[in-house]
């Protein structure tokens, strides 16, 4: 299955205009400065926001087509979406969270073993650490048997050590997954470590040179001014 999308949307500070595709078993990392439209792209893929025009096609299914007035609801797209934070339902314990939309509840136990959070299954989300919460959020997404996995800066709220650990776990896990994964980050190291393909998004448009410029630190135009807010320290990890 391949997901391919091309869409346009007017945003407050710039116009988003981008097209890309990501095929089965591949991890596409979407990278770029904060506020560049990455989350909006992910939300449009999930069906939570509507592009002004364009298409989203998954395999032979049309998820969105502005000309044909097709817009499949997020409920029917059957994808996994891990948000930056706040993904878990606060009133449910970790197990019930992961089993919330599970196809087969037995798999939740296996996933919890795999992600090493089985001992926390009865805890509520606020009683575990951020890393454990995100592990559970990934379990929740995987238990639904997603056809596409969207990870929107899933580890960026975590400390560097936890982040590195989870990054490695995710990379190991990737081999066993048969669906495309789109991973959003603003961390270049993370992108290089995880990606099969990289899509740089700057102000709503794809910009192949962005990473080059960031790594070589060539001062160029307004982009570096934006990127200055990004901690260069992240390159260390």
């Amino acid at each position: 299955m391949t997901i391919s999308a091309s869409f346009k949307k007017r945003l407050k500070y710039f116009d988003l205009d981008i097209s890309f595709s990501c095929s089965m078993k591949n991890m596409m990392v979407m990278i770029g400065p904060s506020g560049g439209g990455k989350t909006t792209i992910i939300r449009m893929l999930a069906g939570l926001q509507r592009p002004d025009e364009g298409q989203v096609i998954f395999g032979d299914e049309v998820w969105f087509d502005s000309l044909r007035r097709i817009n499949i609801a997020p409920q029917k797209r059957r994808l996994g979406y891990v948000f930056q934070d706040y993904t878990l339902f606060p009133h449910l314990n970790l197990y019930d969270n992961a089993a919330f939309a599970a196809v087969d509840k037995k798999e939740v136990d296996e996933l919890f073993e795999l992600f090493k959070i089985n001992h926390l299954r009865k805890r509520k989300p606020h009683m575990v650490s951020g890393g454990e919460r995100q592990r559970c959020a990934i379990c929740q997404a995987l238990a639904r048997h997603p056809r596409l996995l969207l990870l929107d800066e899933p580890f960026s709220a975590l400390d560097a050590i936890t982040r590195r650990g989870l990054r490695e776990e995710l990379k190991n896990l990737k081999g066993g997954m048969s669906f495309p994964i789109i991973y959003v980050t603003h961390d270049i190291t993370e992108a290089l470590y995880l990606s099969d393909e990289i899509l740089s998004v700057v102000e709503g448009k794809s910009d192949d040179q962005w990473m080059q410029r960031m790594i070589s630190r060539e001062p160029s135009a307004e982009v570096s001014a934006r990127a200055a807010r990004e901690p260069r320290l992240s390159l260390v990890y």
Partner: peptide, 10 residues
């Protein structure tokens, strides 16, 4: 975002 998560989960 909790509601978004719920919708995405079906």
């Amino acid at each position: 975002r909790l509601l978004d998560a719920a919708y995405v989960l079906g």
